[in-house]
Write a protein that binds this DNA or RNA. Sequence first.
RNA 1: GCCGGAAUAGCUCAACUGGUAGAGCAACCGCCUUGUAAGCGGUAGGUUGGGGGUUCAAGUCCCUCUUCCGGCACCA
Length: 644
Amino acid sequence: MVVIRLPDGSKRDFDGPVTGLELAESIGRRLAKDAVAVRVDGDLWDLNRPIESDSDVQIVTREEDDGVEILRHDAAHLLAEAVKELYPETQVTIGPAIDNGFYYDFAREEPFRPEDLEQIEQRMREIVERDESVQREVWDRDEAVRFFTDLGEHYKAEIIGAIPAGESITLYRQGRFIDLCRGPHLPSTGRLGKAFRLTKLAGAYWRGDSNNAMLQRIYGTAWPDKKKLDKYLHQLEEAERRDHRRLGREMDLFHFQEEAPGSVFWHPKGWSLFQSLIDYMRTRQDAAGYREINTPELMDRSLWVKSGHVEKFGDNMFVTQTPDERVFALKPMNCPGNVQVFKQGITSYRELPLRLSEFGSVHRYEPSGALHGLMRVRSFTQDDAHIFCTEQQITEECVTVTKLILDIYRDFGFEDIRIKFADRPEKRVGADSVWDESEQALMTALKSTDLPYELNPGEGAFYGPKLEFVLTDAIGRDWQCGTVQVDLNLPDRLGASFIGEDGQKHPPVMIHRALFGSLERFTGILLEHYAGRLPLWLAPTQVVVATITSDADAYAMEVAATLRHHGIRVETDLRNEKINYKVREHSLAKVPVMFVAGKREAENHSVSIRRLGQKHQTSAPLASAVADVARECAQKRVVDGEAA
RNA sequence: GCCGGAAUAGCUCAACUGGUAGAGCAACCGCCUUGUAAGCGGUAGGUUGGGGGUUCAAGUCCCUCUUCCGGCACCA
């Protein structure tokens, strides 16, 4: 007899072994229909695998996270089966479930064409209709290797060959297709349903290593039902509408052109936004005890050799040779320049911590395939700063910076921030003992904030460990922006020192930190986060004063002058157009506030106020309307409901 | 950098198998003085990304370069 205990504590007795599907059927027809797997004593099992001893069992349905993942994994197998049927010469490799879907990597001489996806997807639907049973088989490792080698599936054989000898492995068979897999899988292909779609083709390196062969990856998305699939497809459209490259063009903020790949041409409105961010950050940093500097963009290559940048990132630096045959490098980072400022004169321990900030323009020769709008460029501006301090001051400085970062992100409406701790990478400078010290110091600081964090092993900078601040935008995407890095290497390499209490020279600790990271990128993130509807204080044009008839022109100019006098960025629209037309145009341009002035308003010295996104307008005396807008602009943070 | 795709008017997109480059919106010029998301009419706008080739003839076919798009790799 087999006793099954269910999550609610109830027990069910069976005469002999029972499968998850049978168990589900014994509970309810609906449950049996939605079941995709069972969790047996915590492990996920196939529905048709017999449970032979007393167990705690939970039915996993297609609606829950684990269930959806199984569906997606099944979709990947289905994709592989369809491809093998249509293109038998193709070798299969791996095909996991991923966020929102799945992919499968294939090795094939001839590339798949975009048109092929349609045919493959059609075949997948046919296999669903065939409702092939899916069988789990346990094989001996060596037999499996031989089996796949004989089939010509060399990648599969390689994967299995990497499994420790003697270990048994599981294969899944559906129709004529058989694949190595840990499982679990649905009992038959029909159970997957048809809420899936192949989405894109891509190249991908075998085992994620660019030294290996490039495989062909097919991506798809899969969901428990059509409704969820449609919702996802709709989300994709939404994301496309928010694309900062599109908004940049529509809002006339910036452009790119062939002569300057990866470098931005900022238009007046985009530059206004960019400068608003700098103004804001400058104000916050000044208040936090930073002193702003500026250092050269071109410096002799030898400095970069000394700092270690040439050795580690020389291939990614822009280098230029002058007529006098000196070689200069465009700075890829601000730190060496900042150290030069620190080195001027003799610094006493009494002057530490010394916080030097720089809105530094840096250039990095990014791989061509990495370029992406404002998000990944070859020249950008950092809100950089370097805090020179003693070892005793590390913790306090790191904690202060962390709080500043979180506080500033909140002003932009980012509440959901993750912190990652990245320790020493393989490619690094400095002795391990120095790394031990700096990692420990940064970790102490992190722990003293009591904030949750995760580890990101091996991802530190080449000169020190770092904290990475990851924010989540309005449509759930993650962006790494801020960083705090503890560096016990560079100051020493570049010959920086201060005089300690003991009258001796000591190398200072340098804390590198950036909050926005790249101003360009942060601008892009904000545009997408707000879908172009920037909060009032950041909007390039904050108010448009639009007239109804030309009778109100003089008054409208007076209104605009008053706004301008209050430091508000204002434009007038006196064109000979209907108010409907003007409202539509400025709404599409995402101007946050319109003051409409007609005869009535001119007579009683008021304005009709229309806020972007609101259906109805209000009316107010000019003085109070201006005061309200001025007050809101001065707040410099997102007010409720603005971050949509 | 690698794999695949794309590049036609400012934007979005047409132009069947090679045969006179076209539309909507935007722009500009008129008319209309207008009350909260598109009034009406007209005009102009192009070396079809660059270079080379095939052909009587190339936006269309071939080669090459550039850039962009989607991934992969990279991201100090």
